[in-house]
């Protein structure tokens, strides 16, 4: 059993383990919410296939824990290089204004 403090520590490691990390409802293959699906589609459009996706519907502690970790009230949540980027609205706007291409370039991902 994991205490809240342990979970926060684990989250710190989880977001750093992979260049792109997404906390979502469902999985990339089967998103369970329109907003999570939007994030998956945007990443796919930019050729980001290799990312860590964690399904918060499978773990209620994770679902609350990640909100506390990022001080962000909603799911999905996207992290680049261990840094919180935002939710679906922010990723969509970054996609529309070109910032996403730049940010992915910094990660060494060409979209």
């Amino acid at each position: 059993l994991c205490s809240a403090a342990d979970l926060q520590k684990n989250l710190g490691e989880m977001v750093k383990k992979d260049k792109v990390v997404v906390f979502m409802k469902g999985t990339p293959a089967q998103p369970m919410c329109g907003f999570s699906n939007a994030v998956v589609q945007i990443l796919r459009m930019h050729g980001v296939d290799n990312y860590a996706a964690y399904n918060v519907l499978e773990d209620q502690d994770l679902r609350q824990g990640v909100k506390d970790f990022s001080n962000w009230p909603t799911i999905p949540q996207v992290y680049f290089n261990g840094e919180f980027v935002g939710g679906c609205d922010i990723l969509l706007q970054m996609h529309q204004n070109g910032d996403l291409v730049e940010e992915l370039k910094k990660l060494g991902i060409r979209s």
Binding site: F35, P73, T74, D89, I90
Partner: peptide
Amino acid sequence: PLLQRHRMVNTCLAEELKEIHAFEQK
């Protein structure tokens, strides 16, 4: 920056967001 703007809105509506299922903002 965008993230900070969204955080300002989230903070302003922190109590309300507990009751809201889905929230989109611009």
